[in-house]
Design a protein around this nucleic acid. Structure first.
Lengths: 221, 221, 221, 221
DNA sequence: GATGAATGAGTATTCATTCAT
DNA sequence: GATGAATGAATACTCATTCAT
């Protein structure tokens, strides 16, 4: 749990907790307003500190943004990589588990706001896009590529190019998270059924990846 | 071609051309900076007019944004719906054609900026998210759902729930367009191979959708 | 009738009528918004012409203001001076008549807006204050002073200094007009009873002015 | 003394003093330019602060205006009401004292600018006119009406309708203050003799109000 | 003459950042 | 460390004025 959404335990030294509290507040505000429209006043107020104190911890708004990306996302990648390393079951089971965990993290921790911010601000903050690309996306893509390769090696999957297939696993997950955070609040009647959507996604995908008993041809790269 | 990227005309009948010229400029600036960080000065400068002239055509920044969505996106939907109505071949061929056309429009006309803007600004402009949801997304989703239903009716596809499957067709296309506009500029070595990616997407998808001769089981909803 | 509040007679040559129509529109707009907040767009729209046409008749906003003062007020002064010259009855009757006429003009023609504008803009347009002082106020004050002097000369009034007393006649009239245009619209329950107010004003004033042999007031006619 | 025209204090406890300093500056600028033409830059400069600091104390221009009305006028009304409550002498003495005090406040503190602003901006800021009507004018009118009623009750004055007569007391005072602030600066030769004017006003008025020994008839309402 | 599209200087307001306390 | 008052650069928006048609 990289961010501390709770007011924090009584006995914790404040100075230790502050950065995380601030980042949690920043995530909220950035998620609601976007980067440019987010006001540091609001971040400070939500973190329960003064605006000046913000600058004791983060030199400027962009640094706050970067720290948020770093602290919010990377631990989840560490966790997923550990899961990959320790997994012993089938590639399909691992793929299903990672996809569900991926979506859960994006939604439960409101972390979907982070890629949305990166996407929205890549024009204004190229270094952030680069950082995100190198530290987050590459690792995530590699993670799923490894799962696919493991499945191919084990004879579970057909020999698709893993680097091309990996984003194909991810895209509907991101789609779901973006949808739920962007459109569902404005679409009161229709809940987006993420379960059914991801079930169908995984079923079609795994069906397509599976070595079919009838010897259906390998899809071309 | 809803936007006129062409520079200027003679010194008359300008009033007709202005709105499109302004919207083309606005698309550029919004795409580069996002909504909140875009300066109307820049839009005006890029359209070759003064700031005041902007306000002769659009009452405020939000209206400019809305008009952009309207004029840039809707004609493409009209076109796609016409293609659906007049298509006589297989559902698969139609699906492949629409997906390619969809991506081409997003990239060639830089229109991917529009959904990115909507996503980034939905917190600040809820009415815009609603408008986009109702006018664009619903129609697009319905379009692909109809193609799938047509395939099911024709016996080409298995009986998947079309409303759930439609976003599954779309997600990788949006992913590609977002990737190419957001990350590829910062990732000079690695070109994202959209061709290969969409080929694999369509192959796996159509494979999964196809009525297998051996009577493989229908995927559960 | 210096201003033309009506759309104008069909047969009138427009070029003749235009300036008056514009000034009538300007009076409306200035009365509603004050000088600085009045928009020439509104004046033009209300006059039924384009903004450019305004500049064919008046070089700038200040000139419009000055012309308004000139055309709206001076004819009424001419009229009042003519009434003074031709009057043959008692000074009291003349005073009463002029006071009532003064108020009626201010209210009926919405001319109260003009002194209000002069008062409000004297800091920004010193020349206008000077013009109004010299062309309007001096003449008005002189007018009432002459009536008082005539009354003194005729033995109707006591020998008060006429130049000091004249503004004393005027002040409650202006007060009434300002009240009715400024506060009565926001005070729906309470109509300001201008009749009773001016009656009391004139009664007390004339009572105070009246020549009594024993130093006590003579009963008024 | 509600406004602090004094320049500055030590470098602390400034937050206390700021609002009054700002309002004093605002009174100056509004008095010179009117509301719409006043620039907040000028207010800030005159208050010795930056433009941004203004917004720390007043949310917008209209709020500055309202606060000015509130802080500048109401204490004087409190004072006058206290004087009325504690006065033990004749109604005439009280009336004379209040009238002189009224004028002195308007001129010494430049407060005449406030009713001039209200009059000039009532079209643009109806709520301000309402506020001024309810908080200032009603109380002021009631104040003078009470003095008159006290005089009637004590047998000093004739039985005139006090609510009608009260504005009659006030009108020449306002006239004087408006004159001195609006026209006297542009009329270098002729000083307006406020002393003589108010003397004559009070003499005629009190003469008219006084119970004449010869039993002259009460003026009709 | 008349129009109204175009202009750009002008102003209210916001907000990231600083710094004296 | 923490505060929050102060700053001023930045920007959306307005409107008097001009001028090609």
């Amino acid at each position: 749990m990289p961010l501390s959404p709770a007011p924090h335990r009584r006995w914790s030294r404040r100075k230790q907790a502050r950065p995380s509290e601030i980042l949690a507040a920043a995530l909220d505000v950035f998620a609601e307003r976007g980067f440019a429209a987010a006001r540091l006043d609001d971040v400070a107020a939500r973190a329960g500190i003064s605006k000046g104190t913000l600058y004791l911890y983060f030199p400027d708004k962009a640094a706050l943004f970067k720290a948020l990306v770093r602290e919010a996302i990377l631990p989840n990648l560490d966790q997923a990589e550990a899961a990959l390393a320790s997994h012993t079951g089938s590639a399909e089971a691992l793929l299903r588990a990672l996809v569900r965990r991926f979506l859960a993290v994006l939604l439960d921790q409101r972390l979907i706001a982070v890629p949305k911010l990166v996407i929205g601000e890549s024009g204004n903050f190229p270094e952030l896009a680069e950082f995100y690309l190198n530290e987050v996306i590459r690792r995530g893509k590699s993670l799923f590529a490894q799962v696919i390769e493991r499945g191919i090696a084990a004879g579970e999957f057909r020999a698709v190019p893993a680097a091309v297939a990996a984003p194909l696993v991810i895209a509907p997950v991101l789609f779901t998270a973006i949808w739920k955070s962007t459109f569902e609040p404005h679409d009161p009647g229709n809940r987006f059924d993420a379960e059914a959507f991801l079930d169908l996604h995984l079923d079609l995908l795994l069906h397509g990846l599976s070595r079919s008993p009838d010897g259906s041809p390998e899809p071309q790269a």
